[in-house]
């Protein structure tokens, strides 16, 4: 279990971000320690995706973001990737016109050729069914396979922190388990994972710690194993007025 004595891998302080005039996040504080899985939960529109986009440099932000001891102010997504902070965006946005292998190869863009090739092969080993289709065009993959391909892309650089945005969206329960199992596998290799998810129970099952975001701010931080957590979250989602009666 991570303790506060350890140096955080990712420290976000007072982060605000949004789209043009629309402020989505205001003053978000989170930390991620090396080698832990942190689940980021919260209702729709709470700002989870915005948070990931800000941290990875896809959106401008104000506040403080430190990753592996270095300030990420003004860092482009490319610089973030080079620093070991990889963001797998939501909606399995792979390149459908390229082959599976080319998709994965692209993640190694800029690396020395031989090393890139080697790490591509290692990433492909995570999902044998993706590896088997390496010469097919990505458009022929099912939604679940495309998601696995997107995660595979994220693995190529052996990131220190992998941020997964709703990897479960549109997947069958079996596939969700596969993808989340990959996250657990990664933790075993020392990679930290920041997981944005809608599926609360499945996320809690793999996560070490949980943040819940509502209306652009952190509403809750807890250990994933804290008793009564699902009920608390449920209240957050449906308003505070009275406790819903559960069947």
């Amino acid at each position: 279990m991570p303790t506060s004595a350890r140096e955080p891998l990712l420290a976000v302080k007072g982060l605000s971000a949004g789209y043009g005039k629309i402020g989505v996040l205001s003053g978000v504080d989170i930390v991620v320690y090396p080698g832990e899985i942190v689940a980021m939960l919260g209702p729709n529109g709470a700002g989870k995706t915005t948070l990931l986009k800000a941290v990875s440099g896809l959106l401008p932000w104000t506040g403080e973001v430190t990753f592996a001891g270095r300030s990420m102010a003004g860092a482009s997504p490319r610089e973030a990737v080079n620093a070991g902070l990889v963001h797998v965006v939501e909606g399995h946005r792979i390149f459908t016109q390229l082959t599976v292998e080319d998709n994965v190869l692209l993640a190694s863009y800029g690396m020395p050729r031989a090393q890139g090739r080697k790490q591509v092969e290692e990433a492909l080993d995570f999902f044998p069914e993706i590896k088997a289709k390496r010469h097919d065009r990505a458009v022929t993959l099912s939604g679940g396979q495309q998601q696995m391909l997107a995660v595979t892309q994220g693995l190529v650089r052996k990131p220190k922190l992998l941020m997964l945005d709703e990897p479960s969206a549109g997947l069958s329960p079996v596939l969700v388990d596969r993808v989340l199992a990959a996250a657990a596998q990664l933790r075993a290799t020392g990679t930290a994972v920041l997981l944005v998810e809608q599926l609360i129970e499945k996320s809690l099952a793999v996560a070490d710690r949980v943040y819940a975001l509502t209306q652009g701010a952190v509403a809750l931080e807890a250990s994933a194993k804290e008793p009564g957590l699902p009920t608390k979250l449920e209240r957050m989602y449906f308003g505070q007025k009275d406790t819903p009666h559960l069947a």
């Binding site: 997504p77 490319r78 973030a80 990737v81 863009y109």
Partner: peptide
């Protein structure tokens, strides 16, 4: 967008 996220 995806290309940027991938670090290209």
């Amino acid at each position: 967008y995806a290309a940027r996220a991938l670090g290209l």
